[in-house]
Computed example of a mutant assay.
Amino acid sequence: MKKVSIKDVALKAGVSIASVSYVLNNRTDSRIGKETIDKVRKAADELNYRPNNIAKSLKTQRTFTIGLIVADIANPFFSQIARIIEDEAKKKGYTLIIGSSDENNEKFESLIELFSDRQVDGLIIAPVENSELYMEKIIRQKIPFVFIDRYLENVKASGIRINNYDISFAATEHLIAGGRKNIVLVAYNTTLPHLTERTLGFTDALKKHDLAFNDASVISVNINSIDADIDFALTTLLNDNNKPDALFFTSNKLAVSGLKNLMKRTVKIPEDIAVIAFDETEAYELFSQSVSYIRQPLAEIGKEALKQLHLKIEDPSAPVANIVVDASLHIGQTSNPKTP
C-alpha cells in the first residue's frame, strides 16, 4: 500500500503543500485561516496520513522532542506543571518526555544521559542539590536547557521561579499580624537556594518585628524521613513550656504530614496553633479547616519555561533570562487571628 504523502493531503484539501506543512507541524498563525486548517486536518484524517518523523529529523537535525526533569512527579505541584508544559509543547510541535529525579543525584544524572541519548532538542530541569558540576557538563555539550522552580547559584542558565524570599516574608508577617509571636518554620534540610530563600524570608520577618529567633525556630526535615522527623520535632515542641502558636511549612508534603500529626494529637487549629504552607494540594480538602497556603502561578511558570526553552533551541546564542514571577497568599481558616 502506497504511503500517503504531504502532497496527497494538499491535493485532497485543495490547498498548497506549504499550507499543509504549516498546519501539520502546528505552526499555524494569522496567515492560515480556520477553514484551511479544518480542511487540512480533515483530509489528513480521511487519508490516514502519518508524518515521516525520521525523514523530518534528518532534514532538520531535530527530533522535536524535549525532556522535562521534575523533582517528584507524585507531588501535585510538579504533576500540574508537567501537564501545562506538555500542552504548551504540543502547540509548538514538540513531544514531551518526563522523568522524575526524586531528588536523587544518581537518578538525575541518568535521566539527563537518557534524554541526551534520545537526542532531545532541549531540557527543562528542576535541578537537584549539588548538581552544579554535572550541569556544567551539559553546558559544554551545548544541550539547550532552562531551569524551572529552582536554580543553582554557580550555574549561568535561564530559568523561571517565584519570589521565594518575598512571599515567605509576607506569609510570616500575615501570621504575626494575627497575633502569633512564637512561629516555627518547618523546612527541608537542604542547600538549594530557592528553599534557603524561604527560610531567610521567614527569619528576616521575625527580626523586623523583634520576635525571638533561636535554634528551635526552624525544624529541619530530611526528605526521606518526613513523617518521622516531623513527629519527633512536634513531640519536642509541644512538650516544651514555650509551645509554638504557629507553624509555617515550606512545602505541601511537609504541610500534609504536619497537619495529620497535629490532628492525631487533637491540637486545635487555629485556636492552639495556626498553620500556613507553600503550595496547594487536593489533600488539604481532607482537613476540616480550609488551609492557608502560598499559591504559585503554575500556568505562567509552565508556559514561560517552554517559551524560554523554545527560544534557546531556535537561537542558542539567546541571552540568559532569569525570570521571577510573583506567588500569592491564599488565606484560609488555619491562619485565623489568635483569639484573646
Score class of each variant (00 low, 15 high):
1 M>C: 11
4 V>E: 02
10 A>W: 01
10 A>C: 09
16 S>D: 03
21 S>N: 07
23 V>H: 04
24 L>D: 10
25 N>L: 07
31 R>V: 12
31 R>Y: 08
31 R>A: 10
31 R>W: 07
35 E>W: 10
37 I>E: 07
39 K>E: 01
43 A>Y: 02
45 D>W: 04
51 P>N: 05
51 P>T: 10
52 N>R: 01
52 N>S: 07
69 I>S: 04
70 V>S: 07
72 D>L: 12
78 F>V: 09
78 F>S: 02
82 A>M: 12
82 A>N: 06
84 I>L: 08
84 I>N: 10
88 E>V: 01
93 G>T: 12
106 E>T: 14
107 K>E: 15
108 F>E: 00
108 F>A: 01
109 E>A: 03
110 S>C: 08
118 R>M: 11
119 Q>M: 08
119 Q>Y: 12
125 I>E: 00
131 S>P: 06
131 S>H: 02
135 M>R: 00
136 E>S: 05
140 R>C: 13
141 Q>E: 15
143 I>V: 08
144 P>N: 08
147 F>E: 11
150 R>S: 04
154 N>L: 10
161 R>P: 11
165 Y>A: 08
165 Y>P: 09
167 I>V: 06
168 S>Y: 09
168 S>P: 11
169 F>N: 11
169 F>E: 15
170 A>L: 12
170 A>S: 14
178 G>Y: 07
184 V>H: 07
184 V>K: 04
185 L>N: 10
186 V>C: 03
186 V>S: 05
189 N>S: 13
190 T>R: 00
193 P>M: 04
197 E>H: 09
199 T>M: 13
201 G>W: 00
207 K>H: 12
213 F>T: 04
213 F>P: 05
215 D>H: 06
215 D>N: 10
218 V>P: 02
221 V>P: 10
221 V>W: 01
223 I>S: 14
225 S>E: 03
226 I>D: 01
226 I>V: 05
228 A>K: 13
230 I>S: 02
233 A>I: 15
235 T>C: 14
238 L>Q: 12
241 N>Q: 13
246 A>W: 10
248 F>M: 11
254 L>S: 02
255 A>G: 02
257 S>Q: 07
260 K>A: 14
264 K>M: 15
265 R>C: 06
270 P>V: 02
272 D>W: 01
274 A>V: 10
281 T>R: 03
282 E>W: 13
290 S>A: 12
293 Y>Q: 05
294 I>H: 01
300 E>C: 12
301 I>T: 02
305 A>S: 05
305 A>H: 06
306 L>M: 14
307 K>G: 15
320 V>D: 13
325 V>A: 05
325 V>W: 13
326 D>E: 14
329 L>F: 11
332 G>Q: 07
334 T>C: 04
335 S>H: 03
338 K>M: 12
339 T>R: 14
